[in-house]
Amino acid sequence: MTLISADRSGFSTAAKVGLPLSFDDQKGWDAELALEFERSHGATRLMRRHHRGPLMVQRPFHPENDGTCHVYVLHPPGGVAGGDRLDLRFTLASDARCVLTTPGAAKFYRSATGASQCNTVTVASGGVCEYLPQETIVFSGAQAALETLVSLEGNATYIGWDIVCLGRPAAKEAFDSGSVTQRIEIIRDGRPIWFERIRLDGGSPMLAAPYALAGQTVFGTMICASTDLDDTVADQVRAAVGQVKDGLFSVSRLDDVLVCRYLGPQAAAAKALFAHAWDAMRRALQDKPSCPPRIWAT
């Protein structure tokens, strides 16, 4: 999968995607999951799956009238240690629709070496991929690299969020060492339509600075890439989210994407706000309400 790097000379990180995994098995645990979805007989089916190491899926189900396929992605170890690399690839053929989520938070543990998770999403024309995982907790001292690379064709849609929690405030563990890098890139028909890289070092002044984290420990970015965004979408999302108590929320519609952000103390608050935003986006763009995976309630 070198689609992204092939189109943009500057993106060297993306060039790593798809190269043979080179970690020493003694040091890290590589895990790989590749899922391919196709629409057939009125519903989206998981046609092919490939996994290596501790990444797997539960049996897909179809709770929506339009045949959207819901899949839980499982990482049974639950935590990611130094040297680990998680590589997830979701490929949707024309008109396929899927909702992907996870049953629990991902955790990146303290480690002297880096660990990474890379999600590669490819959606053909007419497809809709909604990637709505639980939060990622980055322990103090972890060195986490989180990447989401999305490639869309034609009028394909991607809705996705990434929620990152720094340290473990409940255990009085501040994010005072280590680092996290989050990178989200979206291209449509080879043209970049969204790029965001956020690098935060443990103990850095940016954690307290209002222009960056403003003293908060949880940040989230939710992106909706659609060719049907109109001027009212941002207002609809704003109205659906309403008054925000735990933390800060913003929404802005750019040319090619709608971006929502959360900054605050609670991953649960971020998820609740983003879930409202998701419902508004679906009503505006897909003419249907959201269908929250039951696992979110447990």
Partner: peptide, 22 residues
């Protein structure tokens, strides 16, 4: 900066800019 370290969004600034719309 190497290529893969280019870019660093300022979240608070990005949110303030979005709020400015309204």
């Amino acid at each position: 900066l190497p290529d893969d370290a280019v870019g660093n969004a300022a979240i608070g600034m990005a949110m303030a800019s979005a709020w400015h719309e309204t």
